[in-house]
Write a protein that binds this DNA or RNA. Sequence first.
RNA 1: GGGCGCGUGGCCUAGCAUGGAUAGGGCGCUGGCCUUCUAAGUCAGUGAUCGCGGGUUCAAAUCCCGCCGCGCCCGCCA
Length: 551
Amino acid sequence: MEILKIFRDEAERLLKSAGYPGKVEEAREEFGDFTFPCFPLAKERRKSPIDIAREIAENIEKSDYFENIESVAGYVNFRISPKKLAKITLNAVLEGRIFEFEKKEKVIVEHTSANPTGPLHVGRTRNSLIGDSMGRILRRYGHEVEIHYFVNDVGKQVAMLLWGVKNIRIEEDNEREDYRYVKYYQAAYKEAEKDPELEKKVQDIIWRYERGDPELRELAKKYVGGIMRGIIESLRRINIEFDEFVWESSLVDKAREILPLLRDYISEEDGAYYADLKKLGIEGKEKLYLYRSDGTTLYPLRDIAYHLYKAERAKKNIDVLGEDHKLHFEAIKRLLQIIKPDAELYALFYSFVKLPEGKMSTRQGRVVYLDDLVNEAMEKVREIIKDRGYGEEELERITQMVAVGAIRFHILNVQEEKPMTFRWENALSFEGESGPFIQYTYARASSILRKVSWSGEFDASQISHPQETRLLKLLAKYPDVIRDAATRLSPYLVAKYAYTLAAQFNQFYRDCPVIKAEKGVREFRFALVKAFKEVIKDLLNLLGIEAPEKM
RNA sequence: GGGCGCGUGGCCUAGCAUGGAUAGGGCGCUGGCCUUCUAAGUCAGUGAUCGCGGGUUCAAAUCCCGCCGCGCCCGCCA
């Protein structure tokens, strides 16, 4: 239910009946809510914009949707009636209608899909958080959403890991599996630097693994499976879960089957096959190899097989991908659509999280692991709330919520394609534009409602304070924000809005006493606080952040 | 070299898709506000040639062209 559209439509209806049909725009607050710039009309009407605006304002019909319509410097400004707004908005929120969107289609969101060669680091986590939040937003928007992780157990990286497991002896301690096994991977790469022959041995592992070599499958089950368990555990700590894990090795046969379907676009070279991207209208690369001359498949082919698998299950597919995948994605999409022309495939690209000293790399051990970030954040939160008289269990619970809130918000609050540099002091900031700020605001609202008993009745005409109106106007934007985030595939829009809304509530909180307000006003404010609480809780949920009643 | 993305106060960031009225926030720094619903809050001050140069327009951070800087991609890796 889009609330502002009701007012926008009314403004445009009034303009039309005044003889000046057109679109209104959002106005800066000091001028009103909607504005109609008259400059473009000046030429055709042979009048100055100022006169046109004045004429409209003088002749326009009155409406109880607007408390004021006036002309200022060539603009016609409309100011929404607070009473009308309060009535529509509060009812929409409190009856839950504001959260309802049209039922849409099935969507698969694939995210993270990190190589299972070691623990998850913060660089990769941006992918996970964007994907997870995107999934939540699409679900809220009415889609039936399924979240996928594509487990890359076939490629060279995993072959390196397995080579390491077989050939390098490492003292294992009691660390979690992902931390234990990554050492084989790192050691194998060190070995590869010294020994150029290793490349061949790894190719042999790839070949045998693809053909289902039992010993290698067994090893992969233990080591790749173990690392995956670690990654899943790390992600679970920050509220991320998946509906389906698709193992790449399970798609090798399917990958071989689809090769002939692409035959018109494929050429052979020494027994290897590649797609001619130029012929497909894709710039940046000529030959995309799909099949090695030794008879093993290459990642692009397996990826097409996977996308075909997904396209058969859902009309719409969204991949969350690092910026390095742009060309690959274009190619995959074209090739997929040759096989299945009605497949709808979209990508949500993001830039890497770097360290001040450069790109994160598991191979080189230059990383900040997600678990370390979570641990640090928890320690810092614990330090802040340890003397607030919470019981042990509650303290741990709040600590966890706030720490995760800080991390998730920090990463989600930036436009996805903007490069990010990880800095501890920023990631662990709990003040200002941060997750804990919003959670704290939620706790304040909860605290008010906890202290009163209220029948649920209220009178919207009791609206009296500008801060009440401001808060309502922002609440009324909720449906537009969700629609934008869902259609533009941009979770950060939700993060920005959540912060703005919380900040607005804090101003209301400062200026408008609720519990001590006189009868009538008090009930109206209860309703407003309750509405804010509902909406901000939903927004936090879309960001994967829990809303603490106390903190 | 070609392609894609990013460039906004000391630092981080919104606005750019759909051009409009003094470019919003946050961090930092300075100074206020707890006898009233949680001070993880709030108020005031500080600080911006919107990378550079042209063009289009009544109007450009926003659109177009050229250039510069940074990142990413251009592999029988994934």
